[in-house]
Amino acid sequence: MKLNLNIQPLESWLNIKNEPLIISGPCSAETEEQLVSTANLLAATGKVSVLRAGIWKPRTRPGEFEGIGSIGLEWLKRAKAETGLPTAVEVATAKHVEEALAAGVDILWIGARSTANPFTVQEIADALKGHDVPVLIKNPVNPDISLWIGALERINNAGITKIGAIHRGFSSYEKSSFRNEPMWEMAIQLKTLCPTLPIINDPSHICGNRELIPYIAQKALDLDMQGLMIESHIDPSVAWTDAKQQVTPSALEELVSKLNLRDPEAPNEAFADKLGELRQKIDKIDDILIQKLGERMAIVEQIGNYKKDNKVTILQVNRWDEILKKGTAFAKALKLDLGFTEKFLELVHGESIRKQTEIMNEGKTEEEIVEATSGEKA
């Protein structure tokens, strides 16, 4: 299923010519001097296409710096006048939209917390009706593709056709080197559903520290994302918000200069032929994998029926430990990534449990059982 969004190509938005698109500026507008000085240094690099700044900052807890407010829009106007750079700000309410547009802001974006709330997105969408302004939508805090898609649809339904997504990573309970887990598969899924949708990567919020930004930025471009939003501050050490993930304008220039741009299309016919040959081999192996999974699940059904007839529980922990140890040892010998192997085995084992559960309950799925039980309680 493809998303039916009416979208204008990124290059038509503001006649932006830099490739990739680089959106940069301070996490928060703190003072007029801080914002304007940073903007001038960024413009001087020749690498930045759009100046961003946080004017209103939704914070997790009260008492933290929540943005300088509307006065910052006047500073942004001055920065735009001095540098010629288009400007971008985050909006979270209808009032934010009205004030930003009145101040001549060129691009609006919707933050992760706002994307997670359809009421907030709809309020913003209603305020945008009748305006021709580019809008970027960050992924929701949690990995919910439907919320992300829903926000894109609501803004598009308001008549906004200059629309794009920002991939800024997702909250996770697992300990990681990243502030927010990239979960690249979510962005890939969105791109698959809507190939014409521009996706901008936000390595600053994914990484949470400046050291990892080059790695994430390069990977985003290698996955054919159209640009990067990187936070930059004239002196990150004294930044009022997110100091660790901001870079100086000179560091940004160096970072962007070292990025490798790769063509998403085949450079010549010989390359395309060789790539096609290799992909055919992968397709054959994939067919075998799916066939073998089907054969495995047929045996799982036999096991489920045998356990049911003999009144044996579905799960035997020792058996799962055996599968995991054997599988990971084999994967290690084949130089496969152990994390990938464990996830694969967990998925297969989870499907085996689901099928056996269905057998134990006379063919009823877990959803049907829950629905029937809920109906009885009602």
Results as ranks from 00 to 15, higher is better:
T93D: 00
D222H: 12
L293F: 10
Q356H: 08
D202P: 08
V105N: 05
T31H: 04
M1N: 01
K80M: 00
S237D: 04
P118F: 00
Q302V: 15
M186Q: 10
R210G: 08
V97E: 03
L193P: 05
D106Y: 10
T115D: 03
L73S: 05
E33M: 09
R179K: 10
N40Q: 15
E254S: 13
A29S: 11
P140E: 04
G375A: 11
N318P: 00
T38V: 07
S172W: 03
T93Y: 06
K311P: 05
G69V: 07
E342W: 05
N139L: 05
E98Y: 03
N310I: 12
A158T: 08
A331R: 04
A165V: 09
F271M: 04
D222R: 12
T45N: 01
A217I: 02
A220Q: 06
E342Y: 12
G276H: 05
V238F: 05
V317D: 11
N209L: 08
A158W: 05
N318Q: 13
N4H: 10
L345R: 01
G63M: 09
T87K: 06
P214Y: 04
S352R: 02
D286A: 13
A266P: 09
R296C: 13
I230V: 10
F330K: 14
H205A: 07
D202V: 09
E185D: 12
L221Q: 05
W320S: 14
P198T: 07
T328M: 14
P249S: 06
R319H: 12
V48W: 01
A88C: 14
S24T: 08
D106Q: 08
I282H: 12
A243H: 03
P118R: 02
W148R: 00
R168I: 06
V256P: 07
E254M: 12
L128G: 01
E181W: 00
L324P: 00
E64V: 14
K364R: 15
K80S: 11
L76I: 00
S257M: 07
Q34A: 07
I285G: 07
I234D: 00
A112S: 14
K274T: 12
K377I: 15
K284N: 13
F170I: 06
D337P: 04
P203M: 03
S24M: 09
L228P: 08
L85R: 04
G294S: 04
D287K: 15
S49H: 03
N6M: 09
E82C: 06
Q189D: 12
A217T: 09
A165L: 10
S28G: 00
S172L: 11
W109A: 10
A125L: 11
E90H: 04
P118M: 05
G294D: 01
L42Y: 00
L14K: 01
W148M: 08
L197M: 03
L152W: 05
L108H: 01
S250Q: 15
N4K: 14
L128Y: 03
L223Y: 11
I137K: 02
L101W: 08
E254Y: 06
P198G: 01
V50E: 01
G164T: 02
F340I: 12
S146M: 12
Q189Y: 12
I206S: 04
L3D: 06
A100C: 08
R61K: 13
K17E: 09
A43P: 11
G159F: 03
Q218I: 10
E366K: 15
E265F: 14
I7W: 00
R354M: 10
G54V: 06
